[in-house]
Design a protein around this nucleic acid. Structure first.
Length: 511
DNA sequence: CGTGCCGGGGT
DNA sequence: ACCCCGGCACG
């Protein structure tokens, strides 16, 4: 039973994920099962091995590269700071790239879809002669390189792109099967497409030498340890003898890896990240008639400011004591102020039209197009600027901490360790552009809460600082759909699914 | 109050 | 594992 519940929970979580990035789904390869293999991998590997001459050429290049790079090895030349041969590559890389390609484009329909969408220009790359290709691509890459400083994702994509290009150069197109060519085109197409959207991403500069989330490594993404610039990319396995090393899927999860470590730490919202990545507009609009003020929730403070920036600064400096880092925000301040909508023109009408959405979805696709949300003037403007890096679990400018919950009365004096949020009481509710959602707190340890001292029940709440699926109440929200009981009636109880018969969560009509 | 279903108990 | 049911939360 427990297992079933868990399964259900997890399926909810995945549903949420897929809803967060519907565009990814279109391109996402099938889930990497451990036993799954690209259908044509053996074939392609064999094809590559047949190309002995080409391999020789590549080996030559590789040696040359090592000479110049001083053993930087697989670190991309340009990105390692030398910028000499953006077109350099190795068969190794090409191989890996191809593997990845198979993962990413196993689905033929997806492939053709992408091919269709891409401008012809981007395919020039693969149809011109080698030399022209090199020069043209060099220019292209150099141009793209300009973005690298501020755009880590761009860097990563650029690297992928390079590998694609090199794979095409190392192996003359004439020698490749049509299918392979097509694959490479598509791969490059994908990469170029991603690259073309990359300027939208405003990532903080890469911070070198920062540790990374372990889970990313597990997923196949590992930082390039040989790189001196803190840059990281697809990890090329050091031994080519292991061709079956599963390459990471290009799923939304993988794209997380394009975030810089600092982003990971700062907790830029996943939903937002996917927004940025997939060109989805971020909802920043608000009802026109609404006057929004921001009230500090700190004990005995209650300061009200008109801008989020102001209140954040206030909290940061006055309450959190962060004088020196006024520009830096880890979003903690989010929790200590609330929006006050002064207009009686309630949000309810706007809220009612929307179904509850996981807080992790920073931008349900319907948000920006809602009629009830109108662009606002000065307030929204400043908010847009300041809130963006802060919004994490919910669009900050859309949520409203209810002013009657216990947490508000007693904001934590300070936040120990990594605890981001320590509301008082066992539950609190948050509402944004949807009916209020009540979160039931999951106490880390009831006894610990008691022991928090000073008579206050302290509780580390993970709703806003970690994936909220873990924080959705202890009880599963009641299913809306008709269950066996309703469908078949009490008299046909024998027609119910077993779960319903046993008064368990219905398995036939799963919500 | 009807319903969904969790938690727990019995076999 | 299968079955049942008290009890609770939700609408």
């Amino acid at each position: 039973m427990q297992a079933r519940r868990l399964a259900k929970r997890s399926s909810m979580g995945s549903r949420r994920l897929s809803a967060a990035a519907p565009q990814v789904d279109a391109v996402r390869p099938p889930k990497p099962e451990s036993a799954w293999r690209p259908p044509r991998r053996e074939g392609s590997a064999a094809a590559l091995e047949e190309e002995d001459e080409d391999e020789d050429v590549v080996v030559e290049v590789e040696e040359e590269e090592e000479e110049e790079e001083g053993g930087l090895g697989s670190a991309p030349p340009a990105l390692a700071g030398h910028g000499k041969g953006p077109l350099r590559g190795s068969l190794k890389a090409a191989n890996i790239k191809r593997e990845m390609t198979f993962h990413a484009f196993q689905q033929e329909d997806v492939k053709s879809d992408i091919s269709r969408k891409l401008p012809d220009q981007q395919f020039l790359l693969f149809t011109t002669k080698e030399e022209d290709l090199k020069t043209a691509e060099t220019k292209k890459l150099n141009r793209a390189h300009e973005h690298e400083k501020e755009n880590t994702r761009s860097v990563c994509l650029l690297e992928q792109k390079r590998k694609v290009v090199s794979s095409n150069i190392d192996v003359p197109p004439a020698r490749k099967s049509l299918e392979e060519l097509d694959m490479d085109k598509v791969t490059a197409a994908m990469v170029l497409t991603s690259l073309s959207t990359s300027p939208l991403v405003r990532s903080p500069p890469v911070r070198p030498n920062e540790s990374l989330n372990g889970s990313w490594k597990e997923g196949g993404f590992v930082p390039s340890s040989t790189s001196s610039s803190g840059y990281w990319s697809w990890n090329a396995p050091s031994d080519q003898s292991n061709p079956s090393t599963p390459s990471p899927p290009l799923s939304a999860d993988s794209f997380k890896a394009f975030r810089t470590p600092s982003q990971a730490d700062d907790g830029i919202d996943e939903g937002e990240a996917s927004n940025l990545l997939f060109d989805e507009p971020i909802p920043r609009k608000r009802k026109n008639s609404m006057k929004v003020m921001f009230k500090c929730l700190w004990k005995n403070c209650g300061k009200v400011l008109s801008t989020a920036a102001g209140i954040q600064k206030h909290i940061r400096t006055i309450h959190l004591g962060r004088v020196g880092e006024s520009d830096y925000s880890d979003g903690e301040e989010d929790f200590y102020y609330t929006e006050i909508r002064l207009n009686t023109d309630s949000v309810a009408d706007g809220l009612s039209s929307l179904s509850p959405v996981s807080p992790s979805l920073a931008s349900p696709p319907s948000f920006p197009t809602q009629d009830t949300i109108r662009p606002e003037t000065s307030c929204a403007k400043s908010e847009t600027k300041v809130m963006t890096p802060l919004s994490r679990s919910a669009p900050t400018n859309l949520y409203l901490v209810h002013t009657d919950h216990a947490y508000q009365a007693t904001p934590p004096v300070n936040i120990p360790g990594s605890a981001k949020f320590t509301p008082n009481g066992s539950s609190f509710s948050i509402s944004w552009q949807s009916p209020p959602v009540t979160f039931t707190g999951i106490p880390v340890s009831p006894t610990h809460n008691r022991a928090a001292g000073s008579g206050e029940q302290k509780q580390t709440h993970t709703v806003l600082s970690s994936p909220p699926r873990a924080a959705f109440g202890l009880r599963k929200p009641r299913g809306e759909g008709k269950k066996c009981r309703k469908v078949y009636g009490m008299e046909n109880r024998d027609m119910w699914c077993t779960a319903c018969r046993w008064k368990k969560a219905c398995q036939r009509f799963i919500d």
